[in-house]
Computed example of a mutant assay.
Amino acid sequence: MAKVKYYYDADTLSYRKIAVKKSAYLKKTVFGIFAVFLIAFIGFILFSQFIMSPNERALKRENEHLKLNYELLSKRIEENAEILAQIQERDDNIYRTYFEANPIPEEQRKAGFGGVNRYKHLDGYDNSKMITKITKDVDVLSKQMVVQSKSLDEIVALAKEKEEMLASIPAIQPVKNEDLKRMASGYGMRIHPILKYRKMHKGMDFTAPVGTPIYATGNGTVIRAQRSSSFGNVVYIDHGYGYKTIYAHMSKIKTRKGKKVKRGDLIGYVGNTGLSAAAHLHYEVHKNDRPVNPIYFYYGDLSPEEFKAMQKAADIEGQSYD
């Protein structure tokens, strides 16, 4: 029940009842209803900040899960970048050094992206900064991997070429040690056995019985296999990479011009043909069409002790066999 209010009337010296107008009452009622709705609305807004709907909770969990995955992805990108950096270091300082190739320029490895903002479409999201960074890191890592992949392809090609080169360079004796009588004459100025004057002996003479097998000292192609007036039955092999070898005074040739040979293949037999004083093999090594001392090309056959003994015998000046 509403309280009745009074006021003191000085004219009548009495208390009179206050009459409430209907318009004031209506205004008060409307204001009260408005206040109730306003409080309810504010309460709903505040309440919604703390209490979410099932869909909102699901979206929030999904966002947190995506953010966690992005953080894990960023960490894995950093780990892979460290591994790639180690591969790049080995590539420049070991692989490319070994195969005598220039290192990849640093500016080529640092795979940057210039020009327009290629990540502008990622702006405007709650986590745009994080997403842009990860996307850029992935792009840079991908480009660096392409550069490194091409470098490794080049290394593989160089390795195959190196393997072929090592197989082609003369590296063994043309006559086996057990078949030799001795190394009769070395590289250098020697007295010719028939002409009887000192002349340059461009190879090494190995004495062995007639018919002793002679072997190719490296992979190559036979470019000459015939008889000559001075070398008798002779074989020339082109090994590539500037190397050629000559095998002279054979009793019999067991190969032909144009044939591909491997190191250790039989190409003929020791003889005494041409300008020769006794049965032996005259063997020469040429590099870029200039004769070089063959003694430095037996590393595939000789022990250090055997090499020293052969070097000592080769240094003795005397009469050559051809």
Rank of each mutant, 00 (worst) to 15 (best):
A10F: 07
E89Y: 14
N80M: 04
R198Q: 14
E64R: 10
D322F: 11
V261T: 05
G211V: 15
S251T: 07
R227A: 14
I104S: 01
L152T: 02
S23P: 00
V116E: 12
T97Y: 09
T212Q: 07
K136F: 13
L158V: 01
D205H: 03
L180N: 05
D92V: 10
H239R: 03
A171C: 09
I33K: 00
P170L: 07
Y236C: 00
A248H: 01
Y7M: 03
Y125A: 12
N117F: 06
G274C: 04
M183H: 01
Y7N: 03
N233I: 03
P174K: 11
K17S: 03
L13Q: 15
I87F: 11
A101Q: 11
A216T: 10
E306T: 08
E100C: 09
D11Q: 06
S185C: 13
S53W: 05
F37H: 07
K3S: 14
T245Y: 02
S229H: 11
R224Q: 13
F31H: 09
R90N: 14
E154I: 11
K120S: 11
E284M: 03
N219M: 06
N288T: 00
L141H: 03
G318P: 00
V30P: 04
N177A: 15
I194A: 04
K3I: 11
A101C: 04
V175Q: 00
E64A: 12
T217S: 12
